[in-house]
Design a binder for these strands. Structure first.
Lengths: 349, 349
DNA sequence: CAACCGTTGGAAAGCGCTTTCCAGCACTGG
DNA sequence: CCAGTGCTGGAAAGCGCTTTCCAACGGTTG
């Protein structure tokens, strides 16, 4: 059915080899006249190379894979945008796979991408605390790398991987410091799920800043929540209900809720609105990530700006660099600064 | 480097054919004993099938392609989520390509996906008013379909394509009607770019509803804006500046701005906030799409709910159905109802 | 018991391309 | 004038699979 290179070659009256060299790029060059004739034939017949066949013959595809929790999540959406655009600029196609943050699914996805012989795999939001999950994934990845695949991680996935590393800990510390400077003294934290490393990193940053004013994590409430709107709603609910039970209502109630991801913070805002608690008057709220709509929420969300597009782009960049360097080059870590953004949800400074 | 089927076959002491049949699914069955031996060898050696080679031999891949404007846009993000998850459930991988809404880019993307021999192409936000652009794209698509590819569109892309068709026109009419019912009488519209068909559909819906109360489109201001926050900001700026120039400030100023996409509405809200105009007190605002965060904006955005996840999922479903039906089956159009969501940005009803 | 089945395993022919290797050619320089 | 040199084009050998064929075999049937 499809037009093959062979048909183009016959139509142009040249050999298969010549047609291949003329059309699909090769070290060898083809005489001008012949090349033009081949191209003309290809156009006339509407030839489109068969990418799987090329991949087989070349032992290399023009695709990369991106693993993330959920493409509809604005955090990962921005990351994916940066990655896909950079890949497209390099002439590569991108397969996007949702893992739902489940290491088992991630493992299966890695195997699929390996089977596809993608050139590179970008891991976003990988990095689990469970050693078993990590081990299985690392094993699959090292098989993949042994065959020439490049792997890069966005945020820490472990040593040995080229990594784009936003300063989660430093950012959390800076944000916390800023909140303390604003006068908040009874912070509560909504942390990400313990199974993700990034949760601990951000929590550590909060602890760093608290320590500077003589506070410890024991003295504040920490609730865990999934990285989702619903997770944030539930967590702040537990926070408030727990607080109300304990002692005097205003005493136990935090004066600022620090949600360590913006999507959670969105849920926090929604729940507080539903309960009729003013933000920031009653309780202030801060998030983390600076997803695109953070500044447009009600009220505008104080958060930590992550350079999401850049992170996605650099992750692909690192992978492409690895292709050139070969697998034995030094592991690269690209540290990216982050910046607290103070907005209305924590009151005007 | 990589473990091949041949190695597995040798290790298990069977032929290539048997190994293939045992491992990678086939009409033919293999004796239980042999099959087990082959699977054991495959596990032991860590065999992963070479997908490009399979694709070549089978003349069919396990991938689909999704074309959209911008994966970071929440509208397309949700669509993509529905599509990728449905594809994954069917054992398919998804390539996501950003076209930026540019027909030229879209054309190149279609060719790339065709070259990849993806099973299906989902077009989201395609559908241009420029006949030239449409013709080129249709030509590329019909070549693709001639070789067995399935194409489905989300929103109208033209006849002859399986289509998931949300009721853009009806939704716009229903929303407009609702605004009129709330008492708004000087609506202004921020329409999408004329080059997209969907813009005209939604505009037509607005006209439908206006006609019911004896208004025509001539009597209201319509500004065009890109589907983006910046587009919305600019458009509402032009709207207000133009209005102020003409006549009495409150006379010329609209009482409600109907942005025909939520991302534009976000920009509208931002610009009005910056100008110190209260929403909905000074001017009410409505959007379209009901992107995930629409209800969390400041103020919560009145809009038209589109079943985005479902749309993405159904689009893939239609494509898979087409695979089974063959190219000559009847063209399917799946009409999906939409629903106005009245929220704070247009005042409490 | 011979002719005939339905099964199951293997040999081998591709799938559409890339890339080695070789042949032919027109030039150089000694 | 001929061996040597650089190019260019073509023949053919794969790349790792799937899938026809074909052969062998145990089991029916008349």
């Amino acid at each position: 059915m499809a037009v093959t290179l062979g048909q183009v070659a016959r139509h142009a009256g040249v050999s298969l080899a010549t047609a291949s060299r003329a059309l699909n790029g090769s070290a060898r060059t083809v005489g001008d006249g012949l090349a033009a004739r081949v191209r003309a034939s290809a156009d006339e017949l509407g030839y489109l190379p068969n990418a799987p066949a090329q991949a087989l013959a070349r032992a290399s595809t023009a695709t990369i894979g991106v693993l993330l929790h959920d493409i509809a999540d604005p955090y990962f959406g921005a990351l994916a945008k940066g990655a896909t655009d950079t890949a497209a600029d390099a002439g590569l196609l991108t397969m996007v796979l949702n893992t739902g943050g489940d290491p088992e699914v991630e493992l299966r996805c890695i195997r699929m991408l390996h089977a596809q012989r993608v050139r590179a795999i970008v891991l976003a939001g990988s990095g689990y605390t469970d050693p078993g999950a990590t081990a299985a994934i690392d094993a699959a990845l090292s098989l993949y790398r042994a065959e020439g695949g490049a792997v890069t991680a966005v945020s820490d996935h472990g040593d040995g991987y080229d990594t784009v590393l936003p300063d989660n800990r430093g950012g959390a510390a800076a944000l916390t410091r800023a909140l303390l400077d604003l006068g908040y003294r009874r912070p509560a934290v909504i942390a990400g799920p313990e199974r993700f490393r990034v949760s601990a990193e951000r929590l550590a940053g909060v602890a760093d800043a608290l320590a500077e004013v003589g506070l410890t994590m024991d003295q504040i409430r920490v609730e865990e929540a999934e990285f989702s709107r619903a997770g944030g709603r539930g967590a702040v609910g537990r926070l408030l209900d727990g607080a109300a039970g304990g002692r005097d209502r205003d005493q136990g109630r935090p004066d600022v809720v620090l949600a360590l991801s913006d999507v959670c913070a969105v849920g926090v805002l929604a729940e507080l609105r539903k309960r009729g608690i003013d933000v920031p008057g009653g309780i202030a709220v801060a998030g983390f990530d600076d997803i695109p709509l953070a500044a447009d929420l009600a009220p505008a969300l104080t958060t930590v700006r992550m350079p999401l597009l850049q992170m996605g782009a650099e992750a692909v960049g690192l992978a492409l660099g690895r292709q050139d360097d070969g697998p034995s080059g030094p592991v690269r870590t690209l540290r990216l600064p982050v910046e607290p953004m103070l907005r209305a949800s924590t009151g005007t400074p």
